[in-house]
Design a protein around this nucleic acid. Structure first.
Lengths: 160, 160
DNA sequence: TGGATATAGACAGGTACCTGACCAATATGA
DNA sequence: TCATATTGGTCAGGTACCTGTCTATATCCA
């Protein structure tokens, strides 16, 4: 009796709960991979950073989080030695974020983590179902915002 | 060009973004209904409370949030005069949460808010799509937890 | 060329979740 | 019946988001 999944929970609740699962799973996967010091929000940085350096503002746009949030992630990664910030030669207001040598080593793992969780969920629930869910969410999102500029995100996030 | 919704965002990112939309929409709907002092997490209380009184612990179970979170919501609603807490005659550790007269008046509106947002989203994206999404999330959730006790939630949440 | 506006980033502060430690009352069971 | 969980609730503290304000630089255009 006790494991019927009976009536409909609200959409808000469902979204929150599934999202929580995702975050936890990403965190666990990072831990497992031996990078306990990298946490979900950091994945956003690893996902979108590139060798030419990138501004924090650009990162916020790509990851859809606020400046404060992204700044904090970058600062933490800087403290951990994965990235460094240097002045932007083309804009004296800005600083560019670069991977350090250490960061370059970790990036593939950090980026792969999201995919890994995707994979696990596909194993559990069927990859078609997961794909359909993604599609549905994406389509919904597109409709909710009248038409938002979007951006790739090969896998990204992991974060939130 | 700028409104293509091109490649696939990660599931985590999608979940976060859609959830954010939901929360904002619920908040806006409450505001619109003239209850700007009621905020999304409070909806959990209004959804699950009943005339016989309910323990905070029971509320946390139903809404799937932690004690601290629910306690805070209840305290706020108490301060606003929507609920009151009285000792549980059957358990001297516990206190029961009851709606005040004021709370009884607001409850239907607070509960309806979630449905309202559901309705709006159905208008925008098609009710079939929304229903399918709910179903998919629920099914996924059921699979992620080996098999969890569930609970109704006629509409609930609103909150997160 | 100079004034309005937009942008990069820092800073201050709030919210809705979370965890873990703790106390008091209750239920369990040898 | 008394030690041992378990549970209801509080307290302290952390995280990942959010908002708004502010300064310095950049951009745009009249």
């Amino acid at each position: 009796m006790e494991n019927c999944v009976p009536t409909h929970l609200s959409l808000g609740l469902l979204l929150r709960l599934v999202h929580q699962h995702w975050t936890q799973d990403v965190e666990a996967a990072l831990e497992e991979a031996g990078f306990g010091d990298i946490r979900p929000p950091h994945a956003n940085v690893f996902t979108f950073i590139h060798p030419e350096g990138i501004q924090v503002s650009e990162l916020t746009r790509l990851a859809h989080v606020r400046k404060q949030t992204m700044t904090q992630a970058v600062e933490e990664l800087e403290r951990l030695g994965y990235v460094e910030r240097r002045p932007d030669p083309n804009d004296r207001r800005a600083r560019l974020v670069f991977l350090t040598e250490r960061g370059k080593g970790v990036r593939p793992v950090a980026v792969a983590t999201g995919r890994l969780v995707d994979q696990r969920w596909s194993d559990i629930a069927g990859s078609e179902e997961i794909d359909a869910l993604k599609q549905a969410l994406q389509s919904l999102l597109g409709k909710l915002r009248g038409g938002d500029k979007n951006d790739g995100d090969p896998m990204g996030d992991g974060g939130s």
